[in-house]
Nucleic acid binder design. Structure first.
Length: 555
DNA sequence: TCGGAGTAG
DNA sequence: TTTTCTACTCCGA
C-alpha cells in the first residue's frame, strides 16, 4: 500500500488553448470569429469554435450531421497540419519567453506545461508582509521594474473547490502563498497571450502536471482554476480534508491522464464484477460510470491488486504502483525541456480500400514525398557558414511502414471495436539517398517507394484484398546526430529521464510496512505511514482518509 | 533492432 | 458516431 509521497515543492501551470485549430484559423482570418466555424478531416469535424458549439456542433461529429444541425456552418479543410504545427511552435516560444528556466513542455499542439517554481520562490521572498495587498510580481530578475502589481492576500480567478470569499485563505501556509502567486502569474500570462497573440486558454495551477491539467478543466473556456490546499490529509483529521482526493474522486476513471481506455476497462470490469457496458463517447451511460473513488475504496485495493488486475503481455512493470499514484493525484514526472529534434516523423493517410496495386504505389509516393518534405523542414537548418545551404541536424536510421485493415463488419453493420487499433509494421535501415538535398523531392520519393516501401508494404499486407486496406503510415525513426557536435535537447532530456528513475523505482516489494513515519521525510522515495488503530494495517499518510472511510462503510 | 501495445491530443 | 493525423514510451523477443 505504499506510494511515493506527494511532493508539493513545485508550482506547475498547465495551458490548454481553447479550440486550437479554430483559433489558428481565426487569427489568420478574423472575420471567421463571429461565424460558426468547423475544421474537417475526411468525413469528420475534428473541432469547432464556440459559436459553432453554441449552435449544437460537437468535436468528432460527422460532417453530414454537422451540416444538418447548422446549415450555415463554415467548414475548412484541416488535413494539412502545417499551419497548426507552426502556430503551436510559435505560441510555445512566446510562453517560454516568460520563463526564467526552460522547463516548458508541449503536449500535442494545444497544451503546454510550465514549471514556474523558481519565479514563484523568488517572488515569495520579495513579498512585503506589511502590505500584501499591494504586492509586485517581478518577471525579470535583471530588471526589477518589469512585472505587475497584484493582491497577494487572495487567489486570482476561480479555485477548486470554489471559495466563497478570501477570508479563509491561510496566508501563513507556504503552499497557499505559492499557489496564490501562481494563480496571479497564470492570469497575467493568459491576459498577455490574448492581447498580444489573440489566443485564449484554459489554465490550471497546482503542484504537479497531473493535478494542474485536471484542475484546469474545471472552468472553461478562457478561464483558470487553482487547486487550493489542503493537499494532504491531516493526521488528526477524521479524513475528508484533502482537496487532491476530492478532485481525483470526482472524476470518472478514464478521465485521469495516464489511464487510457484499456486500463480503465480492466478496472471497471474488476470493480463492477462484470463486463462494463461502458461505451466511449456516449455521455453518462448511466450504470457503468466508475469513478476514481470506486477503485480507490474497493476492498483490498492497492498497488499489488492493481498489478494483478492490469498485468499482461507488454504492460509496464510498475503499472500497479503507477496507477495507484495516479489515483491519488501523485505525479513526480518533471516538466521536460523542449526537444529540439523529434524522435520520429510519420505521415499517414486513411482509405476505404484501394482499387489496385498502381493506386497503392501512387499513395506511397505521395506519402513518401510528404515525409521527405517534413524531414527537410524539421531536421535541417541553414548552415552557419553563410553558404546559404541546408544541412542535416539529425538523420533517421530507420524507415517504417505500417498498415491497418478495415475492421470486420458486424452483422448489424457496425464495426468491431476491439479490432480497430491493429497495425502491422515493417521497418528497415534508411537508405542514404533520402538525405540528398539537391534532388527533387518527388524523384527521391519515387525511388524510396520502388526500392523499399513497396516491398515493405507487401510484407506488412500479405495476400490481402486491397479492399480491406484502411490506413498506410510511413515513418522515419531512430534519429542520430548528423554532426559530431552534440544534440543538446535530446541528450538533456535523456539525462532527465535517468535521473528521475530513483524516485519512481520503489515498488510495493521494496517499500513495505517497515517504513514508518518517523523514519524519513519522504524526500528520497520513502513514505509516512500510520498504523490503523482498527485493523493494525500500515497506511500511507495520503490514504488515511480513504482508509477511515473503508472502515466506516457498511459491509 | 524490430514489432506490438498503450496513451496522449 | 472509433472517426483523424500524428507522437511518445514501454515491453518482449
Amino acid at each position: 500500500m505504499a506510494v511515493p509521497r506527494q511532493k508539493n515543492g513545485r508550482v506547475i501551470i498547465h495551458f490548454d488553448y481553447d479550440c486550437f485549430y479554430a483559433s489558428v484559423l481565426e487569427a489568420e482570418n478574423p472575420a471567421l470569429k463571429s461565424l460558426p466555424l468547423a475544421i474537417q478531416q475526411k468525413q469528420i469535424i475534428v473541432t469547432c469554435n464556440y459559436e459553432a458549439r453554441r449552435r449544437g456542433l460537437r468535436k468528432l461529429q460527422l460532417v453530414k450531421e454537422a451540416k444538418k444541425i447548422c446549415p450555415d456552418v463554415v467548414i475548412i479543410l484541416g488535413e494539412d497540419l502545417t499551419k497548426f504545427r507552426d502556430a503551436s511552435k510559435s505560441l510555445y516560444a512566446y510562453l517560454r519567453g516568460f520563463l526564467w528556466g526552460s522547463k516548458i513542455e508541449r503536449l500535442g499542439f494545444d497544451e503546454v506545461f510550465l514549471d514556474v517554481t523558481d519565479m514563484i520562490d523568488y517572488n515569495v521572498a520579495l513579498l512585503s508582509h506589511h502590505d500584501l495587498q499591494h504586492s509586485f510580481f517581478c518577471l525579470d530578475r535583471e530588471d526589477p521594474t518589469k512585472g505587475f502589481e497584484f493582491d497577494a492576500t487572495r487567489y486570482c480567478g476561480p479555485t477548486y473547490p470554489p471559495s466563497p470569499d478570501a477570508t479563509g485563505v491561510d496566508l501563513s501556509d507556504p503552499l497557499s502563498r505559492r499557489l496564490i502567486l501562481g494563480s496571479h502569474l497564470a492570469f497575467h500570462m493568459r491576459m498577455r497571450l490574448d492581447a498580444e497573440r489573440g489566443y485564449t486558454a484554459t489554465v490550471g495551477v497546482s503542484t504537479n502536471k497531473l493535478l494542474a491539467k485536471l484542475v484546469g478543466s474545471v472552468n472553461k473556456p478562457n478561464n483558470q482554476t487553482t487547486l487550493i490546499p489542503p493537499y494532504s490529509v491531516d493526521r488528526d483529521d477524521e479524513g475528508c480534508s484533502s482537496n487532491v482526493t476530492k478532485l481525483m474522486d470526482s472524476h470518472e476513471l478514464g478521465k485521469v491522464p495516464g489511464i487510457g481506455f484499456k486500463t480503465a476497462q480492466k478496472l471497471r470490469t474488476h470493480v463492477l464484477g462484470r463486463e462494463p457496458t461502458f461505451q466511449p463517447y456516449v455521455e453518462r451511460s448511466q450504470d457503468a460510470q466508475v469513478t476514481v473513488r470506486d477503485v480507490r475504496q474497493f476492498p483490498g485495493m492497492g498497488p499489488a491488486m492493481l498489478t494483478s488486475i492490469l498485468v499482461g503481455p507488454g504492460t509496464a512493470k510498475d503499472i500497479g504502483v503507477r496507477v495507484w499514484e495516479l489515483l491519488h493525484g501523485v505525479d513526480n514526472s518533471e516538466v521536460l525541456e523542449a526537444r529540439t529534434i523529434p524522435t520520429q516523423i510519420s505521415i499517414e493517410d486513411s482509405y476505404k480500400g484501394l482499387p489496385h496495386n498502381d493506386a497503392v504505389r501512387r499513395e506511397l509516393c505521395h506519402l513518401a514525398a510528404s515525409l521527405i518534405r517534413r524531414m527537410r523542414a524539421d531536421l535541417t537548418k541553414m548552415d552557419e557558414t553563410g553558404s546559404g545551404r541546408l544541412r542535416w541536424l539529425a538523420r533517421p536510421r530507420t524507415v517504417r511502414l505500417s498498415t491497418r485493415l478495415r475492421s470486420p463488419k458486424m452483422p448489424d453493420g457496425s464495426r468491431n471495436y476491439s479490432f480497430m487499433n491493429q497495425r502491422v509494421s515493417r521497418s528497415g535501415p534508411a537508405p542514404s539517398f533520402i538525405f540528398s538535398l539537391d534532388d527533387d523531392i518527388d524523384a527521391l520519393a519515387t525511388r524510396l517507394v520502388d526500392e523499399l516501401l513497396l516491398s515493405m508494404f507487401r510484407r506488412s499486407f500479405p495476400a490481402r484484398s486491397l479492399e480491406e486496406l484502411a490506413l498506410i503510415n510511413v515513418a522515419v525513426t531512430n534519429m542520430t546526430d548528423a554532426e559530431p557536435k552534440q544534440n543538446r535537447g535530446q541528450d538533456i532530456s535523456k539525462m532527465f529521464r535517468q535521473e528521475e528513475m530513483p524516485s519512481t523505482t520503489p515498488t510495493s516489494a521494496v517499500v513495505d510496512a517497515e517504513v514508518f513515519w518517523e523514519e524519513s521525510d519522504g524526500e528520497d522515495g520513502t513514505y509516512h505511514h500510520e498504523l490503523c488503530p482498527r485493523c493494525g494495517v500500515s497506511v500511507p499518510y495520503f490514504a488515511l482518509a480513504a482508509h477511515a472511510q473503508y472502515h466506516a462503510a457498511p459491509d
